[in-house]
């Protein structure tokens, strides 16, 4: 009797591990442990205002990480998400402040800029066969330079566009539930996460995302136009980066052209901590979300405990290595 139960549990565990669920549980468990640990260490940690601060800090990196997840699942990598975010913010600034167009046009311009740059990266990778690392490294530098050129190296402020700062700072939820003043930036993060998760699991585009990362040649031999789908995925990823650009521009009420570099690595770190395989084929948006939260909680908690900023960076690096090591151990056990 006991033996039967044992084999059953083992079977279920094996199934969970095979589905990549184990990594998700591991990441989620780490998040919970961090939350408990910090709240014991400091009474200030578990307060609503601090929780909201953590979520707010997650919003930009979370959206960027979602964009990066799409590309990473195809087996690629995107180093340009950080400077692309800045570039879309600058373009929104140009349309709203310099040209003086109405708010919705500016929002569309930011997202369209992101989508177009994603389309370019996708074309470099899929049609011109430039390795994703190189293609997006090039894009990263091009966009960093263009942001500075177009803005004249000066921040573009959105003071003439009333309501722009509400995109991130306002709180629709807070108007309905005054006790929960969750800023719109966080709401946008969860909306983007939900939509992308749906696309990944329920649409043709999402299916090919996993299929390409799993075995691109097999997909091609099945008669699928792999190049077009890959470009479509990079384009979608770029559009999502455009949304991140709007959030950060709105939060700062300005487009800061010198910002952006380094964000791509934090985004990739969140993706990896969330259990998405860098070799492609496996990954979830929920995992990425948890990964981004882990990073934000960690930084926030260390700050509350007055750990020096230099050490916060060291800890972040160690966490990344630990997360990937846990994934490697799991896979070795499986095979």
């Amino acid at each position: 009797m006991t033996a039967t139960i044992n084999t059953n549990t083992q079977g279920t565990l094996a199934k969970l591990a095979a589905g990549g669920a184990f990594q998700k549980i591991l990441a989620f468990a780490s998040l919970v442990i961090l939350l408990i640990g910090f709240s014991i260490a400091s009474p200030n940690f578990m307060q609503t205002s601090n929780m909201i601060a953590i979520l707010q800090a997650t919003s930009v990196n979370g959206v960027l990480a979602i964009a990066a997840t799409l590309v990473i699942i195809t087996g690629g990598i995107d180093l340009s998400v950080g400077t692309l975010m800045t570039f879309t913010a600058v373009m929104t600034g140009v349309v709203l402040t310099n040209i003086g167009m109405p708010l919705p046009i500016g929002v569309l311009a930011g997202i369209a800029t992101g989508a177009f740059c994603g389309f370019l990266s996708g074309t470099f990778v899929a049609r011109m066969k430039i390795p994703p690392f190189i293609a997006t490294l090039g894009m990263m530098l091009i966009l960093k330079g263009l942001s500075l050129v177009i803005s004249g190296t000066r921040p573009i402020y959105f003071n003439d566009t009333p309501g722009f700062d509400l995109i991130s700072r306002g709180s629709l939820i807070g108007e309905v539930f005054p006790a929960l003043p969750i800023p719109n930036g966080v709401l946008i993060l969860f909306l983007v996460a939900g939509a992308t998760s749906y696309i990944l699991s329920r649409t043709v585009l999402g299916r090919y995302c996993f299929a390409l990362g799993s075995n691109e040649e097999a997909v091609r031999l099945s008669g699928v136009n792999t190049n077009n789908w890959k470009i479509a995925i990079y384009t979608l990823s770029g559009a999502i980066v455009g949304i991140a650009g709007l959030i950060i521009a709105s939060r700062l009420n300005s487009a800061q052209p010198a910002l952006g570099l380094g964000y791509e690595l934090e985004a990739i770190a969140a993706v990896v901590i969330g259990g998405t395989s860098l070799s492609g084929g496996r990954g979830t948006i929920l995992g990425t979300l948890i990964g981004a939260l882990i990073m934000a909680v960690l930084l926030n908690g260390l700050r509350i405990l007055s750990v020096a900023q230099e050490w916060q960076t060291v800890v972040t690096g160690a966490i990344i290595i630990l997360a990937v090591y846990a994934d490697t151990v799991r896979r070795r056990k499986q095979s």
Binding site: R202, T203, V204, R207, G223, R282
Partner: peptide, 25 residues
């Protein structure tokens, strides 16, 4: 030439997935 991370059915009908509107599977 299979995609290991997908399910059996997803492999069998790759490229010809039954679709609903708006590219949904």
């Amino acid at each position: 030439s299979l995609m290991n991370d997908l399910t059996a059915a997803q492999n069998v009908l790759i490229g010809r997935e039954p679709r609903r509107r708006f590219g949904r599977l």
